[in-house]
Amino acid sequence: MAKTQLNVRVDEGTARAARERALARGVSVNRYIEELVRQDTGEAGHAFVEAAADFMKQYEAVFAEDSGTDGDRRHEGRG
């Protein structure tokens, strides 16, 4: 992905907090800010949900076989 430069001005306390949090996480301040924006815009959540849906679709038959169910038959005998 192409990168673009974004210059922002923040007070010294905010800058210090960003540096400290980035250091604690073992990432650059740039990476830390990118992660915050992605979290705020939901990109990380969307990517996780899409990956989980793909995983479930790929292994749907395996899960059904392991649990002894296959679609509509899972409710037979109940109730």
Rank of each mutant, 00 (worst) to 15 (best):
R38I: 06
D66F: 09
N7M: 10
A51F: 04
A44G: 14
L23E: 15
E50I: 06
D72L: 09
G79R: 08
G42L: 00
A24N: 10
E20P: 02
D54A: 09
A17H: 08
R74Q: 15
V62N: 02
G42D: 00
K57E: 08
V8Y: 03
Q39R: 09
V29T: 06
V27C: 04
T69Y: 08
V49E: 06
E76Q: 13
M1Y: 12
A17I: 06
N7R: 06
N30C: 03
L23F: 12
A2M: 14
N7T: 12
E12W: 07
D40Y: 13
F48Y: 13
R19G: 00
E34Y: 02
V49S: 06
A15T: 05
G45Q: 00
A64K: 04
N7W: 08
R21D: 06
Q5L: 11
L36I: 05
T41Q: 15
G42M: 00
R16V: 08
G71W: 00
V8Q: 13
Q58H: 13
E60P: 00
D70R: 14
S28C: 05
A61W: 03
N7K: 13
R25G: 01
T41C: 13
K57W: 04
G71H: 02
V49R: 03
A61E: 02
G77P: 05
N7P: 03
F55G: 04
L23I: 10
E12F: 13
G71Y: 01
D54V: 07
R25L: 08
G42H: 01
L23T: 10
F63P: 00
A53T: 13
G45S: 02
R73V: 11
G71K: 07
R25A: 12
N30Q: 06
T69D: 11
G68N: 09
A53Y: 09
A47E: 03
N30F: 02
A17W: 03
V29S: 04
S67L: 14
R16C: 08
G13Y: 02
V62M: 01
T14C: 09
D54R: 05
V62C: 10
A17C: 06
G45F: 01
H46E: 12
R38L: 14
T14Q: 06
L36C: 09
D40W: 10
H75I: 12
T41L: 14
R73Q: 11
A51Q: 08
Y32V: 01
R21T: 04
E20M: 03
A17M: 10
R73C: 14
G77Q: 02
E12I: 09
Q5K: 15
E12T: 13
E76D: 15
L23W: 08
D40T: 14
F55W: 11
G77K: 02
G77Y: 00
Q5I: 15
V8C: 01
R16Q: 15
V27S: 04
R73E: 15
V29N: 02
I33R: 03
Y32C: 05
R31P: 05
R21Y: 07
A61F: 04
S67F: 00
G77L: 02
T14R: 12
G26R: 01
D66K: 12
A24V: 04
L23V: 07
R9L: 14
A15C: 08
R73N: 14
D70A: 13
A22S: 03
E12H: 15
E50K: 10
D11V: 01
T69F: 12
G68T: 05
M56P: 00
R25S: 12
M1N: 11
E34H: 12
V8H: 05
V49F: 00
R21E: 09
Q58A: 14
N30S: 12
H46L: 14
